[in-house]
Nucleic acid binder design. Sequence first.
DNA 1: GCCGGCCCCGTACCCGGGTAGGGGACAGGG
DNA 2: CCCTGTCCCCTACCCGGGTACGGGGCCGGC
Lengths: 226, 226
Amino acid sequence: MTIRVIIVDDQAMVRAGFAALLAAQSDIDVVGEAPDGRKGVEVSRSVHPDVVLMDVRMPEMDGLAAVRELLSPPAGVVHRPKVLMLTTFDVDDYVYEALRAGASGFLLKDAPPADLISAVRVVAAGDALLAPSVTRRLIADFARQRPAPPSGGPALRLNGLTPRETEVLELIARGLSNQEIAARLVVAEQTVKTHIGKVLAKLGLRDRAQAVIFAYESGLVAPGDA
Amino acid sequence: MTIRVIIVDDQAMVRAGFAALLAAQSDIDVVGEAPDGRKGVEVSRSVHPDVVLMDVRMPEMDGLAAVRELLSPPAGVVHRPKVLMLTTFDVDDYVYEALRAGASGFLLKDAPPADLISAVRVVAAGDALLAPSVTRRLIADFARQRPAPPSGGPALRLNGLTPRETEVLELIARGLSNQEIAARLVVAEQTVKTHIGKVLAKLGLRDRAQAVIFAYESGLVAPGDA
DNA sequence: GCCGGCCCCGTACCCGGGTAGGGGACAGGG
DNA sequence: CCCTGTCCCCTACCCGGGTACGGGGCCGGC
């Protein structure tokens, strides 16, 4: 039983390299390639691979959107390939979104070739695999449910929110009023309102109550770390 | 720079096997062993290893308690070794507790020797590593945040709220406006306001945003069941 | 240099939400 | 029987929050 793989990456050289590497394995077949997310989704829908190797950063449709498109069943789509995300540099914040969207793994491109190959096999088998540094972050984030974060910096950035907006959102999710948030951040209350307005608009929410819900559902805050 | 390791496991044969395996590596030194958690903590405190290989199930003090003891700084303890948990059978629920307690990794004992060795190196480097099946579970759990419920049936009435009030509270936590709640319950909007007012008063909350927080923190609603 | 993103602040307006304080109906238990 | 609790509904008021629109300063990238 060979593992059918497609490779989605905007850099042709990268695709060629991975393809050569994987095709050399007797139990892996590279059955397709695509230069961007949109085409990747199309190719996946037509060839039905077992595993999709997907770069994060791409033109036209980035890996994240592609994963969502691919794994959210938009009608009568029965085929759900495993998705292995790839990223060039270090861990970026897309990790969390990708995992939530249903990705089975996350690797750095500079990982040893043997790791990539075994990752494909692991994912195809229905298990998951993360780069060690990613695992570390995930665990840290997971463990963060008991202890209060000492530094508590809002370095994380989800859904196109700016750091400041994310910070405000978290304070909303802590139950603070605009006045209290303003005091905490040492800015005018109107500035807080502006930030909140942008947050609501960007996330498609109506009021702060829905913002709190979003914060919990997205994992920005979790029950227990009050 | 060699990696100093101690092995904590109640089975002498297992200890010997791992010790031989690891000692054969030029960059790894086995500097101690212990047959149970309590002695493991003692040994760790005296020899200050970089990595502690710890079995989950052990007499006297199990691996879980040992990790907590080891990683929760109970005074002026500066030394915090990395802990790599080992388990014989498949994933048990201790995984989550161990990770929360600060373990850096979780492996099955039947993993390939090469995996164990590389795991020690990865953990020593400050990264984390999980068995693929563990990773899968962690991701799944992370994707739809469901912190282990303390069991028990649905507390129909929490904190002295009437059923109706609880119902209203849940709808607030779903993001509905007063108008929408009124429509849903087929009552006047003012009635909804009254109920909400009582809820807020009884729970000591200020506004509906804080009510949403309470709903999540109390478990009335949980992330993922939107 | 220019442009775009981010952060900050303002004024003005409107409305949903929360408060205060009533009242009517029905149930069950002392 | 009365009393307590729950659910329902009302008027009236006020304020926090959200919207609309404008502007200034800062920085990094093209």
